[in-house]
């Protein structure tokens, strides 16, 4: 289990994370939702120790160090592959560095998404690069797969394919943390939603709980973020008088 306690992070005078407590358990598929600048990326990067932070982050009771970090994998919209080498060379690199690299999964996913294995990754389209980034994170053989906006730039068909494949192939103990804005799209994939805003966790709910209470994820998120649907009309009222707007709409 990944256990985060009292995690705080400041960038200059900006408080990016404030006293965050969170647990990620094996087998969970967790959606991490929040507006831009809410602290999603900072939270994920802190887990890997890519940035300094205060608080504690442990993996099965041990701090995340070089000894156990291979149990975590990362897919990011910034990309973490080597752009000048091809997929085959990446597979070899992963085989050399990650004992539990899943070559079978790698081959199946590469074929499924029709990605070329002998072309430098920099020559693939942005969508294909995103797919490749996620494939490598899924094939590393990690127990915890952390994804930060991995589908930015992918079309809807690609994304839907990915969700289906992801659901079908994840092992029972593999945990996925998926940070994304695509709330409705992933609502059928995740089993838990964590909401973050201004560096604080403002909601943490199992989707089964929502179902039992007859609510849906979008409503829960809107309520947690105190979303005001009338603010659209308020803004429009200031720009265009109501009568004119009705005329135009008619």
């Amino acid at each position: 289990m990944i256990e985060i306690k009292g995690l705080s992070k400041k960038y200059g005078s900006t408080q990016a994370l404030s006293d965050v407590d969170l647990q990620l358990r094996p087998g969970e598929i967790v959606g991490l939702f929040g507006p831009n600048g809410a602290g999603k990326t900072t939270l994920i990067k802190s887990i890997f120790g890519y940035i300094p932070y205060s608080g504690s982050i442990t993996l099965d009771g041990e701090p995340v160090t070089r000894k156990n970090i291979t149990r975590l994998s990362f897919a990011t919209c910034e990309h973490s592959f080597f752009p000048n080498i091809d997929a085959k060379a990446h597979a070899q690199f992963y085989k050399d560095h990650f004992e539990s690299f899943d070559e079978k999964r790698f081959n199946v996913l590469m074929e499924f998404f029709s990605l070329p294995k002998d072309k430098a990754i920099k020559h693939l389209s942005t969508g294909q690069q995103n797919q490749f980034e996620v494939i490598m994170a899924l094939c590393q053989g990690a127990d915890y797969i952390l994804m930060d906006e991995p589908f930015a730039g992918n079309d809807i068909f690609n994304r839907e394919d990915f969700y289906k494949v992801l659901l079908g192939m994840l092992g029972p103990d593999e945990c996925v943390l998926l940070s994304t804005h695509l709330i409705e799209e992933v609502s059928g994939l995740i089993n838990r939603a964590v909401l973050i805003d201004k560096g604080r966790i403002i909601g943490d709910v199992q989707l089964s709980e929502l179902e039992e209470s007859g609510r849906d994820l979008m409503d829960y998120i809107k309520k947690s973020f105190s979303y005001r649907s009338d603010r659209v009309f308020e803004a429009l009222d200031q720009l265009v008088p109501e009568e004119e707007r009705h005329e135009e709409m008619a």
Partner: peptide, 15 residues
């Protein structure tokens, strides 16, 4: 450059 492969390097077991 052109990606953050440093993230991958930092995930390998060797410092």
């Amino acid at each position: 450059t052109n990606s953050r492969s440093i993230y991958l390097m930092k995930r390998t077991g060797s410092r």
